[in-house]
Amino acid sequence: MSQAETVSTPARISPLRTLGLLRSELTTTFRRWRTLALLAVLAGVPILIGVAVKIETSDGQSFGGGGPEGGGPAFIAQITNNGLFLVFTALAAALPVFLPMVVGVVAGDAVAGEASAGTLRYLLVSPAGRTRLLLTKYATTMVFCLVATLVVAASALITGAILFPLGDVVTISGTRISFTEGLGRALLIALTVAVSLTGMAAIGLFISTLTNSGIAAMATTVGLLITVQILDQIPQLDALQPYFFSHHWLSFADLLRDPVYWEDLTKNLQLQALYAAVFGSAAWARFTAKDITA
């Protein structure tokens, strides 16, 4: 591709054109059957958990399990008393595997999928410009992160309201807050979970710029996620684990403390910002220098 085809003049770049490109990317992404199927799977996770808890407690006994520090399993024991806890449980169950996997699929396919379909060159000729196109792809992936997280939270809230009672929320600290405040914290937790996926999204976008095969990019991104999750469980690597992008993901549980414990939450947000900056820059450096042939 010639330089004239890939470089847009400043006069032709406008906010309206950028918004149009973003709207086009969002429409394309959320109209794909694959995207809708992924969101349907995510919506099914809280339903399965809620039904399982309901069946397990149908004889009047409480649901067993639960960690001492208010992690995902600890939330399960509270679902029968308050269906709002299904939101926290579903997010804790989906965050380590399901949410990052679907984000990895979307991010990994962002650039490589266009290349494999033969549409990447035409997007650059439109003119989109490489930097603007890459930023649009990342913004689209981030919107998907938010939508995917909210789908899990909304499905959990609806399922919890149908199967279990709703009421005041007992925090991990043992204090009681109103249902309205608990609902607000649930929304804040969902937003935190979405932001926690920004590093993963940047990694997937970078990998997507390295190949012209969408399937290879998606598989590599998901494979990297699984590898990091395994390494994060090996005690001998405890010195490195705080730097893994997934290490502080479950720190959102600290939003259910009274007062909120911010230390691990802040570490998580800082780590995601670092990964987004590093791999976002790497993706930009690779994509702007890449020879586009498809």
Rank of each mutant, 00 (worst) to 15 (best):
D232L: 10
T159N: 04
T293C: 07
R286G: 08
G118Q: 05
G182Y: 01
L157G: 12
Q78E: 11
T175S: 04
V51W: 06
T140M: 10
L21M: 13
V278Y: 01
N268C: 10
Y138G: 07
L210A: 03
L26Q: 04
Y243S: 04
T89N: 06
T136K: 02
R32I: 13
V278P: 04
A107W: 00
L146E: 08
Y122H: 14
V106G: 00
I203V: 15
I47M: 10
A52K: 08
N212S: 10
V41A: 13
L269F: 14
L38E: 08
A294Y: 13
I177K: 03
S246L: 06
T35P: 01
G174Q: 03
T192M: 15
M1C: 06
A11K: 15
S58Q: 07
I162A: 15
G65D: 00
S213M: 02
E114M: 08
G70K: 01
T175Y: 02
V97A: 08
P10N: 09
F244G: 01
F98I: 06
G184D: 09
W262R: 02
Q241P: 07
S8P: 11
P46H: 06
P10T: 08
A273R: 01
T175P: 02
L157V: 12
D254Q: 12
F164A: 00
D168F: 08
V193A: 11
F88H: 11
T18L: 15
R31M: 14
L183F: 13
F144E: 03
S178G: 09
Y275L: 05
N268L: 04
D264R: 03
E5K: 14
L36Q: 08
A219R: 02
S251D: 00
I49K: 00
G118K: 06
G65S: 04
G118N: 06
Y122F: 15
M218H: 05
G113W: 03
Y261P: 04
M142H: 13
L163Q: 07
A219S: 09
T131S: 13
A194W: 06
L197M: 11
L95W: 05
L135I: 15
V41S: 07
F244S: 08
T18I: 15
T293A: 12
P242S: 03
K267C: 11
R286K: 13
A239R: 11
D291P: 07
L146G: 09
T18A: 15
V111K: 05
A74G: 11
D232S: 10
S246A: 08
R176N: 13
V53W: 05
V111D: 01
A92K: 00
Q270M: 14
F144T: 01
F75A: 12
A239G: 06
I207Y: 04
L269P: 09
G83Q: 05
Q229C: 09
